[in-house]
């Protein structure tokens, strides 16, 4: 039953998206960085990235509970379910410090991106 619903949803979404897919941009190789979430903490909690470059941020949620990667400074927001991996592109950033946090556990899940 659940799988059926999932398939239906998948098909529906795929149909929706095909409308939006006239030009699939070629994704150039981006510098990649990995962040893990464990016990509602980011590892590492401080990420240094080159300034003025688009970065591929891979966030892996090792917790069983969902988390939402959120940053007002980076204008990013993405739900990551328990045990899932999410890819978030950030930047290009001017040099500076950009805090991010897990919206579901904002007290402990805190980190920052430092663009240099």
């Amino acid at each position: 039953m659940k799988a059926g619903v999932r398939n239906l949803v998948t098909i529906f979404i795929a149909m929706l998206l095909t409308v939006l897919l006239p030009v699939l941009p070629v994704q150039a190789a981006r510098p990649e960085l990995q962040i893990e979430i464990r016990d509602h903490l980011f590892y590492p909690s401080v990420v240094k990235v080159p300034a003025n470059t688009k970065i591929k941020l891979v966030v892996i949620n090792r917790d069983p509970t969902p988390e939402e990667f959120e940053s007002y400074e980076l204008n990013r927001e993405k739900v990551i379910m328990g045990g899932q991996k999410a890819i978030i592109f950030i930047g290009p950033l001017a040099p500076g410090v950009y805090p991010f946090f897990g919206e579901f556990n904002p007290k402990t899940a805190q980190g920052k991106v430092i663009a240099e």
Binding site: R38, D39, L41, F42, Y43, Q110
Partner: peptide, 9 residues
Amino acid sequence: AESNFSGFR
């Protein structure tokens, strides 16, 4: 200051 160690913040 705030920092992470021993699995906690």
